[in-house]
C-alpha cells in the first residue's frame, strides 16, 4: 500500500468540482483508493463519497492506495492534488 497526505488548499473545501475532478481522475487506476479525513473514509473514485467527507479548507486528507498500479496511481494523484485542487476553479 502507498500513502500520502494532502492538506486542502481550496478555500471552499472539498465541494462538488474538486470532488468530481478527483473522482474522475482516480477512476483511471485499478488500485483501490481510500481518502480519509479524521474519522471519515471515502471511496476516492466516487464523487458522492468524497463530498460526504465534509472536508473544509485546511483538512488533512490521507490517501491510501493499494493495487497493482499503486505506485503510478499514488504519484499521479499526489501531483493532481497539488496542481488541480488549489481552488482557483470553483463550483
Amino acid at each position: 500500500m502507498k500513502e500520502f497526505t494532502y492538506k486542502i488548499e481550496d478555500p471552499n473545501g472539498m465541494h462538488a468540482r474538486p470532488a468530481g475532478m478527483l473522482a474522475t481522475f482516480a477512476k483511471q487506476f485499478h488500485a483501490d483508493i481510500r481518502v480519509n479525513a479524521g474519522e471519515k473514509s471515502a471511496d476516492g473514485k466516487r464523487l458522492l463519497s468524497l463530498m460526504s467527507l465534509g472536508a473544509v479548507h485546511g483538512t488533512e486528507l490521507t490517501f491510501c492506495i493499494s493495487g497493482d498500479d499503486e505506485d503510478t496511481a499514488a504519484a499521479a494523484l499526489e501531483a493532481f492534488c497539488k496542481e488541480k485542487m488549489k481552488g482557483n476553479t470553483k463550483m
Binding site: G13, A16, L47, L48, S52, V56
Partner: peptide
C-alpha cells in the same frame, strides 16, 4: 440523501437503483 454541502447549494443522492446523483 447522501450528503448536503455546508453551503446548502449541492445535494448528492443515492438512488434506490444505485445511481450517484449530484443536484447542484
Amino acid at each position: 440523501v447522501e450528503s448536503i454541502t455546508e453551503s446548502r447549494h449541492a445535494y448528492t443522492l443515492l438512488s434506490d437503483d444505485g445511481l450517484d446523483i449530484l443536484v447542484h
